[in-house]
Amino acid sequence: MNDNTSFSDEMLNAYLDGELEADERAQVLQALRQDEDLSRRVCELQKIHNMVQLAYQNTALPEGYETANASSPGKRNFAIAASVFLVLGAFFSGWIAHNFNQAQTLIELAQEVRNNQPIAADDHWRLVLHLSTDDKYRMNVALNEIDRLLADSKRTQQKVNVEILANGKGMNMLRADTSAYAGRIKSLQEKYDNLLFQACGNTIARMKKEHGLDIQLLPNTQIVPSALGQRIKRQKEGWTYIHI
């Protein structure tokens, strides 16, 4: 099964789109480690994926659509959320509010936030993304962008650590019984050891108390006592914080 030709284009596409079952995904991953030609095929498909997203992310909206700057909901929501939380963040870490409406992607936005922070002496970028919604679009954007950031940083040997902190509805992404992203998250965890998924202990306790749910999390998910506490801790430690 590890022969390059045994993987159809359909299967490689399904691999990229997170549509394969765990065993099939494992087969592709295993083959990717050994087969340069297969890696090249997947890389090309990934490039097309990024290019199509790039080509339409700033589609000009006609007059009368919500805001002139809102080329995509993700961009707008990320920008608004970050601006709001920056104001809160300023209280903890003295960040300077900035006009983020020009930021193109989640990571570019995070980079703008980082530019307004003191840079760590070792040039190590530590980023925490706080997810409190189960909006599929935002989750997809977040996972895609994180994948891209970590792949880039691996290639350029830039030191980066990313934590994805989930609470409230965002927990759906990390619950073994509800997550539509189990395969995707597993593959990201296998690819990057500098990516950590964290779940809010308070949310877990509340769901048990209010709904009698005994939540099982995806493998390798860390539980923190409280998402809010973790966020404040990380901000004090100089992490870049983005609420998505």
Partner: peptide, 14 residues
């Protein structure tokens, strides 16, 4: 519906 408007447009444009 209002929230989906810009996204619908982007796909319609594509």
């Amino acid at each position: 519906l209002t929230n989906s408007r810009a996204r619908l447009f982007r796909v319609a444009f594509s």
